[in-house]
Design a protein around this nucleic acid. Sequence first.
DNA 1: CCGCTAATTGTGAGCGTTAACAATCTGCAC
DNA 2: GTGCAGATTGTTAACGCTCACAATTAGCGG
Lengths: 343, 343
Amino acid sequence: MTDGSARQAVRHAVMADVAKVAGVSHQTVSRVLNSAPHVRPGTRDKVLAAIRELDYRPNPAARALVTRRSQLLGVVSFGGTLYGPALTLDSIEQAARDAGYFVSVATLRSLDARSVQDAADRLRDQGVEGIVVIAPQLMAVRAISTLSSTVPVVSVCSAVRSRMPVVAVDNRAGAAAATRHLLDLGHRTVQHVAGPRDWLESAFRLDGWRGELEAAGAPVPQPWTGDWSARSGYEAGRRIAEDPRVTAVFCANDQMALGLLRAMHEAGRRVPEDVSVVGFDDIPEGAYLTPPLTTVRQGFAELGRRALALLVAELDGAPGTPAQVLVPPELVVRRSTGPASRS
Amino acid sequence: MTDGSARQAVRHAVMADVAKVAGVSHQTVSRVLNSAPHVRPGTRDKVLAAIRELDYRPNPAARALVTRRSQLLGVVSFGGTLYGPALTLDSIEQAARDAGYFVSVATLRSLDARSVQDAADRLRDQGVEGIVVIAPQLMAVRAISTLSSTVPVVSVCSAVRSRMPVVAVDNRAGAAAATRHLLDLGHRTVQHVAGPRDWLESAFRLDGWRGELEAAGAPVPQPWTGDWSARSGYEAGRRIAEDPRVTAVFCANDQMALGLLRAMHEAGRRVPEDVSVVGFDDIPEGAYLTPPLTTVRQGFAELGRRALALLVAELDGAPGTPAQVLVPPELVVRRSTGPASRS
DNA sequence: CCGCTAATTGTGAGCGTTAACAATCTGCAC
DNA sequence: GTGCAGATTGTTAACGCTCACAATTAGCGG
């Protein structure tokens, strides 16, 4: 128990073993492995056969040591069980694989700068070549921009004015579209249940909502604040339901909208007859809520893919490409929204 | 663009640099780093100071090369956006960090043996010391048991009779509890919407449901089959709603229950007055559905933690500990279930 | 058949760290 | 003061791979 030396003693074959079996030098084996030019087909075959025979696998540590390339990318993530981050992580992994990289994850324990520092440090200590940050909190972004000096960093989050490459959904535009949709249906104004104050997403969606309201000359009510959870949406909903004048609510994500739907139901307010509700994200369950939820679809998968592409580009190509990619969201109209009642 | 040699030329400090600055040998630096005994406090301080001054970080590749320990664990995952797998991954990462390991993920593209092989190979090529498999499909488990020879593997899934260490929720018991709950409420029998046929979870839950029905002498209806999605639950629900004799349904997961709730609503069948519904998983939204969903709570977080503990134990301790951990689930009664109507 | 270029293969030197062992320096009993 | 165990530090040799360059072989025109 003092150390782990009790492991399998099966000596893995190394390059020298392959060389011996194939009757060539280790360098030739290396050439075959890296598909270098100038290897006679016959030689290549012998080497390949030896590799198969010995079930040889190149030692990644040795390779990394000399090439100074670990082939490892790091992902810092928070809220890994949330639909968006989970899907983004998934797509990043897939894209990384296609680009020939491995992905190591570090999740945030809590939402403070130290935690982000720690996660990034862990990743660096592991030798990652680059980092993608999925934590979309204001704080996280700030913390990250501090340590970006050593390793290239790309963040997936809302657009933010910075020198750092960013891939983001255009939250403002999405929120504006949702709000306009409700306004177009004849609602006098639209309530808003925002996300946590320290998330950039929250800020941008709030902004898009407010901007659209102002542009339309509609009154701008005091927004409510939730924490993305259905529970918080429910609680906001209970309070909102007390005001009989409310006819439209835009929630900053689908889970909160789901909770709000529940609160409306309990309060006897029909959706969409009495109150229209719009969410954000388009979680797969959205279409099967009662009623099916109108929402703003985010291309999480594309987000991840683009972020990875950006990182890889910076890694083995253009040095300073501080690109800022904005992915447009899409309004998905379902049955939770309808015309303002004339009652 | 031919290669990535255009990266930052900032020569990172290596151990020799630290040694020189501290005025000691590189071995002494190594000792300080590994907190080996017999280092005079004064010397340690000098070394520590030099490390800080140079912002020195040990090269993980070099260390791995000589120690033959990569400190890397692999996780094979499928359905990364599903609540259970996502949460499990999250808890595995946290546990791994506490145990001093890094976590690298490999997601499955599709559900065939080759895909599992590929994922595991990728992980091995990367030098992981052990693998946790979250893919709970029958096929995946079989595929895994094939390659477990080289690297220790722990799988998180339903209990399955094998030589492989497994951490699982007792799906059978959970399903039985759900079924019994409905029976106890006076329902004559219980319908079941199962998960995909090739998932172990599906099989065990089906089994638990059927067993309880038989034990109670209740008729065993033909089960329906879904794919975990709300959509599939909705479709099953539409069909189930056609049969007026149905008063209770047990769905193999919460998403399908959610879809089924929608179908019942559309068909004018009230829940729980006309039909009682039970899910499985306890997703966070469950309590805010209409009506709040009675379900079986799984300890996904504990699952991940236990799986990792098992793997680490095998890694640096007991060699052959083919443990099989069974985590008991818990019935959470909410308002989607009620007594059978006397109508 | 010779000489030259290009294709093919081999050799030696690290990459940055830890392990094993040697060397030196303590402190203390005799 | 001397000697010895133990504490402290240094030296050398891997770990398994790629890079740079040397060596060998093959192909071909004159």
